[in-house]
Every structure is written in C-alpha cells, then in structure tokens.
Amino acid sequence: MNIHLRLLLLAGAAIFFGYTLYYIRKKQLDLYHSIRWFVLSALILAMALFPELLTVLAHVAGIEIPSNLVFLIMIVYLMLTCLSLSASVSRQHARIRTLVQEAALMEKRICELERRIKASEENDDDIVAREAYKDKSR
C-alpha cells in the first residue's frame, strides 16, 4: 500500500475524529452513537498506521490489492451502521406512535374533565341564584 493512500487514510481518520468531537461538543450527537464513529476513526487510523496488517489480511482473504480490502472493510462497516440506524428509526417510530396515542387519550380525558367541571360550576351558580331568590322572597 503506497504512502499516498496511507496519508489519505490518516487525513480521513483525523476528519472523522474531529467531526465526531464537534458534534458531541454541540450536543448534537449522543455518546451512544458517537462510539460507532470513534471506532470508525480508529479503524481508519489502524489501517493507515499498520499497512502490513492489511497486506496479510488481504492475502488471507484472497484479495490481490490491499487497498481493495480498505474499501471492503469500509463498505461492510457502513452497511452495518445503516442497518442499525434503520433499527433505531423503527424504535423511534414505535415510540412516537405510542406518544401520539397516549396524548390523544389524555386529551380526551382532559376535555371530559373540563366539561364536567363547567357543568358543575353552572350547577353551583344555579343553586346560589336560587338560594338568593329564596332569601329575597322571604
């Protein structure tokens, strides 16, 4: 693996690492999700620093050019990431659904309570008015 690709990988690792930190700092990335991207940075860094490892792995996997193994590793990692993000979206979806449903059920209860309170207040007013009328007529 030539020095150009290694430098490129090094730069890539630095950019990913920097971006991950940036989002964490701005509180736009949960630590839970950041781990995935830290691991990715570390993976890229490892490939840049220890190309011999890549050469050996490529040989074992029957891949002629080690740089192709870099692509393979990246693609598999990204595919796994996408899958787990899909799962995460599904979970969010289920939660939103429950929230919307519970909010609707709650709103109905509140409306009923309001109606009942209003009715009983009107009732109270009636009683007060009647009592006052009785007092006067006495």
């Binding site: 659904r97 919307v100 449903q101 609707a104 709103e107």
Partner: peptide
C-alpha cells in the same frame, strides 16, 4: 380522539 400526527390506519385503530 385527536391524533396530533398522522399515524396511519393501524395506529389510529390501535388508539
């Protein structure tokens, strides 16, 4: 019941 978002038929019936 009023859903504040559109959930689709399944979500509506489930409510």
């Amino acid at each position: 019941l009023d859903h504040c978002l559109n959930l689709g038929i399944g979500g509506a019936v489930q409510s």
